[in-house]
Each structure stands twice: as C-alpha cells, then as structure tokens.
Write a protein that binds this DNA or RNA. Structure first.
Lengths: 221, 221
DNA sequence: ACATAATTCAAACAAGTGTTTGACAAGTCA
DNA sequence: TGACTTGTCAAACACTTGTTTGAATTATGT
C-alpha cells in the first residue's frame, strides 16, 4: 500500500482522479440515490477505470461517506441562518432572514443540496450521525428561532406555543424540500427556480406566520 | 389465464395469497424501500412461492403500485378527509376536519402507517408509481383543500395565494411525520402519543392557519 | 368422472451488481 | 541502474436480482 510519500506530481495525479470520483459520485448519488448509483456510471463520468473506486476508497459505501463529508460543511457556511441581520434588529426582520436563508439552503443547486437528501434518508433510518448532527447544528438553530418567536409573541421561550409556532414556521420551509416530487407533479413550475421566486416564497411564509402568531387567539392571555 | 370464473372457495384462496403478498410487501417496502426489497423476502413472509408475485401482479413494480394504492385506500377509508363533516358546514369546520384526519393518518399505528413510510421513500427516490398515485389519490385531496381555503380566504380557487396557503396548512401536518427523528430528539415527548394530544396539535395547526389566512395582508384587496 | 382452467412449486435463466485479480506502465529512492 | 511502490486498466469473478419455465396440484363446470 501507500508506504512511500509520493512526489508532488504523483500526488496531484492521484488526488485528481480521487477528486473526479468525488464529483462524479456526488452527481450520480444525487440523481439516482445510493442504491441505484452504479460504480460503472460513476467511473465513466469521472473518466476513471472501474476499479478506481475500490482502489481509492475501498468500497462504494466508503465513497458515499466521503462524498457526504465533502458536501457537509458547505451549506451553513454558504448561507448562515441570519444572513448578516444585526442582533438588535426587530424580530420580524430576523424571522424573515431565518426563513429566507433556510429556503436558500433548500433550493441551492450543486453539492450543497446534497446534504438535504442525506438528511431525508436519516429521517427514515436515523444513524448515529443524527444525534451529533442534532446537537451540533440543529439545536442551535432551533434555539435561535425560539428566541425570535418568543420575542414576536411576547411569550417565554419555553412556552409550548412558542415551540409549536416555531415548528409551524420551519415546516413550511422544509415542506418544499421534503415534498418536492409531489409539489412538482401537482403544480408544475410551482417550485422556485430563481432568486426572485425564492424571495417571493420567503415573503409568503414570513407574512403567513407573522399574521398567525400575532392574531393567534391564545397568543396573549 | 383466468378465463373461468372461480368459485367462492378458489377465489378466496387466490385472493388470500394475493392479500398475504400485499401485506408482506407493504411491510418490506416500508422497511427497506422498493429497490432493496427482494421478491424472495416478500414471498417468504407471505408464505408464498417465488413466482407468486409475477403470477398475481405481473412484476415487482406493479406489486409496488398496488401496495401504494392498497395502503392509501385503507388509510383514507379509516380516516376520510372530512370525517363526516356535512357539505354545508362552515369552511373553518372543514379545515379543522381535514387537518385532524391528516394527522390521524400520519400518527396511526399498524399497517396503515406503511403508506406514510413508503411515501416518504418516494420523496427521496420517486418511482413511476408516484405519477399515478398523485393523480388518483393526492390531487383529489388537494382540490378539496383548495376549495376549503378559497372559501375561507374569499379568493378564487386558482389564485396563487390559495395554493400557497394550502401548502402552508399541509406542511405543518406532514412535518411531524417527515421530521419525526429530529422532533423527538430535539424535544422528547413532544410528538402526540394519544388521541387527545393529536387533537391538541390539530387545534394548534387549525388556529394558526386560520389566523394567518384571515389576517394575511394580501388576503383581501 | 372428465376435460379444462387456475394456482402452486422448484428449478433454472439472463442480466446486472460490486469487487477482485494480475498484468502493465510510470514514478521514487537507494 | 534496479528493486520497489503507486496508479491504471481490461477481464473475470462471485453473487444477487427479477423473471420465466414447465410440470405438478387443485379447483371448476358439465
């Protein structure tokens, strides 16, 4: 195996096919899923030999995990939850930013969107990765949203209504991700294609939720 | 093939294995998905021969489609969309019934819940079965909801705001199904366990949505 | 009872899968 | 240079898949 350090040239060459495999695999996995993706197709797109995957990654499943690791950290880095809205901004503005950034992450094209599909798989068969992912990435965002909603509704953060309404906000965003196959078939061209229509959708969700939270019968006693 | 009408007994016997296949297939599809489900495993659980699926359904894919129809039909039969609310009832009552029955279907235990799991898998990797299922099952329910929402908002059924708000309603319901692993880890014991807590959740979603639709800035001109 | 149809069954089939092999070229370092 | 490692390649391997086959079995209608 790799006992000697390769030279810069050899390293570059090896990393090159490795990188091509990662890119091709990401595309194929995203298109047809892990099970229907064939190593032959991945290698064909990568311009590599059929044995390349087993040589560079061991097996198909390790390649899958490597692709995940590759696209994992990019989503939040590209679209931070509050998108530069100052901390002393009114909560309505923060909510709008929160919704918008979530939608941008969902509708983003390229390797970033890959993470979403994997999360969907985790919903069906959660792995150990789920627990750490919840604590490291999701809970902080949830707390952020609870804070915003509690300000808007003028209720304590641990109030049940704050949690329920926060879920109502998030659910409207992830719906377009989780139910994309249904939405596209039910109403073609309904899903946002460009930045403007994403903003339009963010507007609807924000206004819908604000109207609900401010006029909910039980919002204030 | 079947040219003669079989007697009641033979028909019962034939339908029996057919039914066993549907049940076993529903369980297996829900557990591992269409692609990873093998006809051998399904037939083994059904106590049938390996050729039974091809004999009774033609091929694996038709069986899958039949399972989707079968399970969704059972779910709708158990929890009809409007749950006996009269046609001349106020739209608010209908919305509440629509939400409640959808939640009941989502949180139902037993064979009925297969449909939800299989549908969730369809979201990740849609098969051809999805198209016919949309037209036969989902579109009628969508029309029903659009009708209700258009009455509530006093807008024509084909108005974009009606569609958006309808999605907002449905999304809050399916959220608890699609994101169950996240919700349970984020807030233990948040998910409804009994009929009373399901009603509680139905109350929140209905009130939240009604407040939103009635106070949406653009709802009425 | 008999011919016919419907159903079940074990075995085999054809196609596709991920993986392994062994040879070969190229680069590395003594 | 020459032993050694790294990377690539075509071919083949071992295995699983859904499906088909043809005979055996059971039920049906006259």
């Amino acid at each position: 195996m790799k006992l000697n350090m390769p030279t810069e040239f050899a390293e570059a060459s090896a990393d090159e096919t490795r990188h091509h495999l990662l890119d091709a695999a990401g595309a194929v996995f995203a298109e047809v899923g892990f099970r229907d993706a064939t190593v032959r197709e991945i290698c064909r797109r990568a311009g590599a030999n059929i044995a390349a995957i087993n040589y560079h990654f061991g097996d198909k499943e390790t390649l899958y995990l490597e692709v995940l690791r590759y696209s994992h950290g990019k989503a939040l880095e590209k679209y931070p939850p509050l998108m530069g809205v100052p901390a002393d901004a009114p909560p309505e503005k923060k909510l709008r930013a929160f919704v918008h950034s979530l939608l941008l992450r969902i509708f983003d094209k390229g390797p970033t969107s890959w993470h979403g599909k994997v999360m969907l798989r985790e919903m069906i068969e959660p792995t150990e990765a789920m627990d750490s992912l919840i604590e490291e990435r999701i809970r902080p965002m949830a707390s952020q949203l609870w804070q915003i909603v509690s300000e808007i509704m003028d209720l304590p953060m641990n109030d049940e209504r704050v949690r329920l309404c926060s879920f109502s906000v998030v659910s409207q965003c992830v719906f377009y991700h989780h139910c994309r196959p249904v939405v596209t078939r039910l109403i073609p061209n309904e899903l946002p294609q460009d930045a403007a229509s994403i903003e339009h959708l963010a507007d609807h969700i924000t206004k819908f939720s604000l109207a609900a939270m401010k006029h909910l019968p039980t919002a204030k006693r």
